[in-house]
């Protein structure tokens, strides 16, 4: 049971972020295709960082009983993949929230040009398609 503690400690906040994402259309609920691509690149990059660091002996897994003990590779617990996914997702969700709070708007990326007409409609269709 305790072996699931770390995984749960990552997955529960991730689910909470997904609720924020769904409510405010920040990341996956704003642009699923591009967001998944960005998350995928981020996850691969951080996994590469881990693999090199572990191969060089910079760190290794601890003896905590809060982990399942399942490994993706030597010294690389399956929970690390969850953590990396969480880190990438929280980054994009936070960026969206900060943009929204500052009035930039989560959809505004490169400039302050006026919103393109039909954007809301298109976003709505994407949401329908995602269900």
């Amino acid at each position: 049971m305790t072996g699931l503690a770390y995984g749960a400690a990552i997955l529960v906040p991730t689910a909470c972020m997904a609720l924020l994402d769904a409510r405010f259309h920040l990341v996956l609920w704003r642009d699923p295709r591009r967001s998944l691509a960005v998350l995928g690149v981020g996850i691969l990059l951080f996994l590469a960082w881990d693999v090199v660091a572990i191969s060089q002996g910079f760190y290794h897994r601890g003896a905590s009983e809060a982990m399942t003990g399942l490994l993706l590779a030597p010294e690389l617990p399956v929970e690390e993949l969850l953590f990396i996914t969480f880190l990438c997702y929280v980054t994009l969700v936070l960026h969206g929230l900060v943009a929204m709070a500052s009035g930039l708007g989560p959809a505004s990326e490169t400039s302050d040009r006026p919103r393109r007409p039909g954007r809301e409609l298109q976003a709505g269709r994407e949401r329908e398609g995602a269900r």
């Binding site: 591009r34 691509a37 690149v41 990059l45 980054t91 990326e109």
Partner: peptide, 24 residues
């Protein structure tokens, strides 16, 4: 360095993947 890279790289990648014509 982990949060520094995440905070810089991921929003930049998303901006790069967003074509200028699609920017709202």
């Amino acid at each position: 360095a982990w949060p520094l890279v995440a905070g810089l790289l991921l929003p930049s990648l998303r901006a790069l993947l967003t074509r200028p014509t699609e920017a709202p």
